[in-house]
Design a protein around this nucleic acid. Sequence first.
DNA 1: TCCATCGTTCGGTATCGTCGAACAGCCACG
DNA 2: CGTGGCTGTTCGACGATACCGAACGATGGA
Lengths: 270, 270
Amino acid sequence: MTGPAPRKGMIQSVERASRILKVLGTGTSRMGVTEIADRLGLAKGTAYGLLRTLEAQELVEQDPETDKYRLGPAMLQLGNAFLDNHELRARSLLWADSLASRTGDAVRVGVLHGTNVLIVHHVFRPDNSVQILEVGASIPWHACALGKAIVAFLPEPSRRALLGLELAPLTGRTVTDPAVLEEVLVAVAAEGTALEDEEAIVGEAEIAAPVFDDRGHSVGAIGVVGPVERLLPEGRQAAAVIAAVRDTSRGLSRDMGAGRVGARSGATRR
Amino acid sequence: MTGPAPRKGMIQSVERASRILKVLGTGTSRMGVTEIADRLGLAKGTAYGLLRTLEAQELVEQDPETDKYRLGPAMLQLGNAFLDNHELRARSLLWADSLASRTGDAVRVGVLHGTNVLIVHHVFRPDNSVQILEVGASIPWHACALGKAIVAFLPEPSRRALLGLELAPLTGRTVTDPAVLEEVLVAVAAEGTALEDEEAIVGEAEIAAPVFDDRGHSVGAIGVVGPVERLLPEGRQAAAVIAAVRDTSRGLSRDMGAGRVGARSGATRR
DNA sequence: TCCATCGTTCGGTATCGTCGAACAGCCACG
DNA sequence: CGTGGCTGTTCGACGATACCGAACGATGGA
């Protein structure tokens, strides 16, 4: 009732330990044993044993003063190791730099993770402004161009499944109607690029295009972000930026092994 | 015989799952079930069950083509969550920016993690050169100024333990003799700052100072890195930079709650 | 001072993870 | 074209093991 049905064949203690990590990751600030046990619906002693084990592995840490728990340093190291072994990220480094200097905008590369887009690479806008690194951040897929670009080219069962889930609004312009979003996705699939206009953060817009692997599946997306007035001016000056994003996504897809062009329904063609 | 003795009271499956994650994190590129099972000394079926549950949690991913395993996206999210909840990092953001603009050098903040220093914050040198973000990287403590600054102020049992372990050389200048390193640490404790001169990377030097919490324990360090000829010139022009680093570390320590100055053996004093 | 709540300990019991052998698929080699 | 050795995967029976729930000591407000 409290937790989702424990799937068959899954190792119970490991599943519970993972959920502890995720609970510690979402809720800001540290948590106590009882709070964790309550939230996961298991006995206090059980949660304690799991925490002790995770602590020995330095996956969680216990504050010596308050006795509360938080994520441990090994977590950061593993997160970094994920990035190091990430093929899309590795291959996108050069393309992202090139795109950033060509358009003068910030560039982000993301992959789908659950219903969110996880940023795996981020190149700052090449002016000297202060910007915060967004690698590791995750954004609801329906509220960013990266997400729309990925989902528009997903194989059908997955695509519909994502459209069926609830779509939370982040700003006043976030599209939350499944029917409208469906139309948007069709347009994205036809166009090959996705737009986002202040749907995640007020004042920010994004232009993105999908990246395919050798099977023609969309494994991620690359795009530029920036102030609305810069990215989506009143005239149609954005055409040059859109072309640059599309070119980059195609080159990157080729790097990822996407064999022949147009492997998917003529979307990358024309 | 192969693995370390399983500590009493630890949950076996969770400990094994953690070790799988670490093995996937260290070895570059992906690994197969049998390779993982062999390296951890457990049955193939057992490793498979663990991997399946970790995969269900998206902590690991399986390459659909080669059937090999790699770390999953949830890892990055958790690593990022660790940073968000990290008190030293949060408090160091402003101080690091200020130190970087004051000295014109890159700034790093690190904590001790095992025998390594884990970088939790990194501010680029404020010129327009291309630099890679080092957050999440880990460096042997004896080969960087951050590490020496931390260890020099560690409570005695821990300090000696770290000196006793093997000290691998990274460059020709890395100090690997425990006796020599011991003297260096004494000097660092007396001086309040640590230096590093091409001991980790040829051509790079670092100046760092420890950060204390309210108990007077060294919880981390902050320092500047850069080309040797810039940071450690022939003359004694470095004095200004050293002073800046020391000031910053004191301010940051105060932020962390280090109550009275000189809580530890007059080290932070004069 | 007392009560409430915290993190921690402990032992019995049934659950649950472990092991090892056997299965099917793949690739390289002969 | 067959074959041997790999791979990742499945399955079932055994018994070690992780779960639970109650009790403990310390802590911090009221």
